[in-house]
């Protein structure tokens, strides 16, 4: 079990993450979503014991990962670049076997076979996607109880991505492993994670189970007989609204049915209801943090 308690880490006087707390239970997969530079990697490195937090702590089985190195034998951190590019998969396995007591060469052989990777080939000859696969193969072979994956799906083709998803799900279920995945790929996150946290540069903006994530949000498309503007919807908890003459698209927070009933009271000519995808929720939550590209060249 992973516990993150009030974790803060800064660089050069500015906090990259601030007062972050969450828990990841055994057999659970936790997704970290956020824009570039939001602090996902910093958070993972703090949990992995690479960075010393400025305050707070990261615990695995109630032991501090920074001050108790022995606990890190239960944890594999797949960082965004691989360790020995000049080495081979087999030699890399030998290296990790020295630090992970449960390291399984049998698993290594199996997974190399599944992914079609030559364990005796030099890693310098591998493509980016193959290096990612090699990294994950090493991670699974280490048989950890905690797996930290930092954007590990980048560069994988759809087939390998699907295979990897299944492997993570199976491994988590079989070994009762706690997994944290950081990714920009929101589809994968929603596919395999139990919970998802949205990190926005310092704090966790949202931390919910995947099932609940869209429960209190809904998107509506409405057509009225006259033009409408934002002030006409002041009675709603609006996350996002777009008025285009008589047509209005809006994303509302709150009960779907209650919101729909209230909207029908406005007598729209047409009303359509859509569930929000994780990507849409992500974009809504991140709204205001990016440039509006349409304004750049205007």
């Amino acid at each position: 079990m992973i516990e993150v308690k009030n974790l803060t880490k800064g660089f050069g006087g500015k906090n990259a993450i601030e007062d972050i707390s969450f828990e990841v239970g055994s057999g659970s997969i936790y997704g970290l979503v956020g824009f570039n530079g939001a602090g996902k990697t910093t958070l993972l490195k703090c949990i992995a014991g690479v960075y010393k937090p400025d305050s707070g702590e990261a615990l695995i089985d109630s032991k501090n990962t920074f001050t108790c190195p022995a606990i890190r034998q239960k944890m594999f951190f797949a960082a965004d670049s691989f360790l020995f590019p000049e080495s081979t998969m087999y030699k890399t396995g030998k290296f990790f076997a020295g630090y992970f007591p449960n390291f399984s060469f049998e698993m290594l052989d199996k997974l190399c076979g599944v992914f079609g990777i030559d364990k005796n080939a030099r890693l310098t000859s591998f493509s980016k996607g193959m290096l990612r696969q090699a990294e994950l193969i090493a991670g699974f072979s280490a048989m950890p109880e905690v797996l930290l994956l930092d954007e590990s799906f980048d560069g994988l083709d759809p087939a390998k991505r699907n295979l990897m998803n299944n492997l993570i799900l199976d491994y988590t279920a079989e070994k009762n492993c706690s997994v944290i995945i950081s990714s920009h790929n929101l589809h994968e996150i929603s596919d395999i994670c139990d919970r998802v946290a949205l990190i926005d540069g310092k704090k966790i903006r949202m931390d919910r189970s995947v099932d609940d994530i869209g429960a209190d949000r809904c998107k509506f498309r409405l057509v009225f007989d006259a033009e409408k503007n934002e002030s006409d919807f002041s009675g709603f908890n609006i996350k996002k609204i777009k008025c285009e003459g008589k047509m209005v698209t809006l994303s509302l927070i709150g009960s779907k049915d209650e919101n729909e009933a209230k909207l029908r009271e406005m007598n729209p000519l047409l009303i359509e209801k859509f569930p929000l995808s994780l990507e849409e929720i992500f974009l809504e939550e991140m709204e205001g943090s990016d440039y509006d590209f349409r304004e750049i060249f205007s």
Binding site: P69, R72, A79, Y99, F100
Partner: peptide, 17 residues
């Protein structure tokens, strides 16, 4: 180097060791 230090310091060995 950032990449090698990430891996080395995440291993189950103390810095002193």
């Amino acid at each position: 180097a950032p990449h090698s230090s990430n891996i080395r310091y995440s291993l189950g060995i103390s810095r002193n060791s």
